[in-house]
Amino acid sequence: MTEGMMTEGFWQGYAWPTIIILAQIMAVVTVVLIAVAYLTFAERKVLAMAQLRKGPNVVGPFGLLQPFADGLKLLTKETIIPAGANPVVFLAAPILTFALALMAWAVIPFGEGAVISDINVGVLYLFAISSLGVYGVIMAGWASNSRYAFLGALRSAAQMVSYEVSIGFVIITVLLCVGSLNLTDIVMAQKTIWFAVPLFPMFVVFFISALAETNRSPFDLPEGESELVAGYFVEYSSMSFALFYLGEYAQMILMSAMTSILFLGGWLPPADIAPFNWIPGPIWFAAKIAACLFVFLWVRATLPRYRYDQLMRLGWKVFLPLSLFWVVATAGVLVAFDWVPK
């Protein structure tokens, strides 16, 4: 083998694919970050409209540059590490939260074949990544060396572990109807009908659990400002705070993407007929995510916070039995009518 062939092989075998993958990752991360920035903006606008206010409208046309102004402001502030805090864990927590929120996007299909990594166990990967999200919270709460932060972290850990159980069962129900753990297969299985229709109760359970999993209101007890100041991130400032903030919103977008993949047909149009299928898939996907996100904000504007015992009761005594029953019922129906996917 000559020197020239070696470089050729290296170029074709490693360097070029690496460049392509890095470019894809950059593209997805950029889109997600811009979406996160405008989600914070949209949240303030939607809440303002719900409360008959104007919301941010000064920076740029309609206040459109507000998220960047906020970002710059946070960037220029000082990072404060409290005395008695554990510096390594303290700084690792926001990085972990943010990294996990971005990692999950590796398997999300934006259109047919438009996915960075089309792995066999896509759903499990998403489930695994979202179950790791709790570490950022616990580590932050413990490392801050503060009572408020620690209490917030404990609440959050208990809450996320509880609701994960029912999310797991909901995912199993969907998987029973698909017969594959691949996200693209899950979307393609909804060609005739979106799973939100036959599995409507599971759709509702999943969405509410997603609210609890992302610590959004009405389940935002971990940060309950009236009793815990701001919960697990009280002690954070500057970029370490910004990473938590971005991570939380990226997690919301991710959960909405999961909802639309599992129940709303991903990138598929509502019906495969003329005016609908002119619009490309990724736009449908983005529209569905936006619709889910709007409901997230709408819920926040409408509902008061749950009491902690009510939250636990809902997770363990209502959602868990309900989703378990639906797993059994769905499996029973599929077997009885011989609809089990091959």
Binding site: N120, F127, A128, L132, I138, A157, V161, E164
Partner: peptide, 18 residues
């Protein structure tokens, strides 16, 4: 890959949290 994901979900995501 299935075992890998299960390891993360069960051990990392649930057991180690507790």
């Amino acid at each position: 890959e299935f075992l890998a994901m299960m390891l993360v979900v069960v051990y990392v995501g649930a057991v180690a949290v507790l």
